[in-house]
Lab assay of single mutants.
Amino acid sequence: SKGEELFTGVVPILVELDGDVNGHKFSVSGEGEGDATYGKLTLKFICTTGKLPVPWPTLVTTLSYGVQCFSRYPDHMKQHDFFKSAMPEGYVQERTIFFKDDGNYKTRAEVKFEGDTLVNRIELKGIDFKEDGNILGHKLEYNYNSHNVYIMADKQKNGIKVNFKIRHNIEDGSVQLADHYQQNTPIGDGPVLLPDNHYLSTQSALSKDPNEKRDHMVLLEFVTAAGITHGMDELYK
């Protein structure tokens, strides 16, 4: 796709999030870079409003799984890469995230190029959380598991539907599940690639910047598309 050509090198990323969870309002600002050749993201996020009212790991899918245009699609799968094909005009990404036995996040993001920078601007609203639950009670460990993110075409809306389940580790050794339902639709009216069913395999590492006084998260992530085999004719070339 034409959009794919915008991702040949390292691309700067800007992320802006405004959130409200159970009436606790907050903002997060992030910057870093993405390299789609390797499916690599390096980002640093800062809570610009003081202390973040929710655990950082609960925002990873909104912040970095928010820029799935940096996923590495192998050559034989490039015609299934909706995310890059929607660029530079970008796409709207909407999600509902259900935390098992707790509340939910609803998010709406616009992901697009502004100049040479890929920008992810998000509004997040969280409701029905227990004040002493795993999320508002800050009981999650500061780490992140690997996940597969399942993608299918949504021809009606000229976009994709995505769903997956995140496993958050809790300090007591148990797990907090979070079910994600995602819809992506193009902002522009140019042609986009509608994929066959496949998935993104994601690995994320969270860390801290020892010199950063503000509440923050440093993230390194690798994302690769998989799940579609080479056609038989490919094998015999």
Rank of each mutant, 00 (worst) to 15 (best):
E4K: 13
E4A: 10
T8P: 09
V10A: 12
V10M: 08
V11M: 05
P12H: 02
I13T: 02
L17R: 00
G19D: 00
V21I: 10
N22S: 05
G23D: 03
G23S: 03
G23A: 02
H24Y: 03
K25G: 02
K25Q: 13
S27R: 12
V28M: 01
G30V: 00
E31D: 10
E33G: 05
T37I: 10
Y38F: 15
Y38S: 15
K40T: 05
K40R: 12
L41P: 01
K44T: 13
K44E: 01
F45S: 02
I46N: 02
I46T: 06
C47S: 06
C47R: 01
T48N: 06
T48P: 02
L63M: 09
S64P: 00
V67E: 05
F70S: 03
S71G: 12
S71R: 00
R72C: 14
P74T: 15
P74S: 08
H76Q: 05
M77K: 03
K78M: 11
K78E: 05
H80Y: 14
F83C: 05
S85P: 04
E89A: 07
E89V: 08
Y91H: 01
Q93L: 01
E94K: 08
F99L: 02
F99I: 02
K100Q: 14
D101N: 06
D101A: 06
N104D: 04
A109T: 01
E110G: 04
V111L: 11
V111E: 00
K112G: 12
K112Q: 07
E114A: 05
G115C: 06
D116N: 14
I122V: 10
L124Q: 00
L124R: 00
F129L: 07
F129C: 04
F129I: 07
E131V: 10
D132H: 07
G133S: 10
N134H: 04
I135N: 03
I135F: 03
L136M: 15
G137E: 07
K139Q: 09
E141K: 08
N143Y: 09
N143S: 11
Y144H: 05
N145K: 05
V149G: 03
I151V: 10
M152I: 13
D154A: 13
K157R: 14
N158D: 14
G159V: 05
F164V: 09
F164C: 15
K165R: 12
K165M: 14
R167L: 08
N169H: 09
E171K: 10
D172G: 13
G173D: 10
V175A: 12
V175M: 13
Q176R: 02
L177R: 08
L177V: 15
A178T: 07
H180Y: 04
H180N: 04
Y181N: 07
G188S: 11
V192L: 06
P195S: 04
D196V: 11
N197I: 09
N197H: 13
N197D: 15
Y199C: 12
L200P: 01
T202S: 03
S204C: 07
S204P: 02
S207R: 09
K208T: 12
K208N: 06
N211Y: 11
N211K: 11
K213T: 06
K213N: 03
D215E: 08
H216D: 00
V218D: 02
E221A: 01
E221G: 01
T224S: 14
G227E: 07
H230P: 15
H230L: 09
G231D: 15
M232L: 10
M232I: 13
D233N: 05
E234V: 12
E234A: 07
L235V: 10
